[in-house]
Amino acid sequence: MSKRHVTTTIDGEGREFLCEDWQTLLDVLRDVLMKTGTKEGCGTGDCGACSVLLDGRLVCSCLMLAAEAEGRVIETVEGMAEGDRLHPLQQHFLQEAALQCGICTPGFLVAARALLAQNPDPSEREVRFWLAGNLCRCTGYDKIVRAVLAAAAEMRGAEA
């Protein structure tokens, strides 16, 4: 059987790709489009390292077929910065030292971005439960939660 042709938008760019029907979006992002910023930690939706936004909705790209991306809008960590200008979440992750090894960071950033899009002023508890699908083994989450809260505060200030 020949490969499937998929037309989609990824990080603001129209993209076309060929994939096998069984390939996940994560497979295609990493191995076909060579967009390796999105990470694989488990392949079963339990770690959140592969988080992307699908039409604005937070999903695990390992739990979605690439074929399902037809006509959809995908956003990854690679589209968060505008040129050299980092997203406030990226900036605060750096300032707060919210990453150690950094492998979970892309997933956390995408998930936190989705949170702040729908809840600009989350409590610590809301941040923790929203991010419960993103595993980090290095930080104990403390600095990640602080970075998200700080970024939220800055973004609220910027809008006001």
Binding site: G45, L58, V59, C60, L63, M64, A111, A132, G133, N134
Partner: peptide, 9 residues
């Protein structure tokens, strides 16, 4: 049912 990510699907 699952995480925020799983909830999306």
């Amino acid at each position: 049912i699952g995480s925020t990510q799983i909830q999306g699907r």
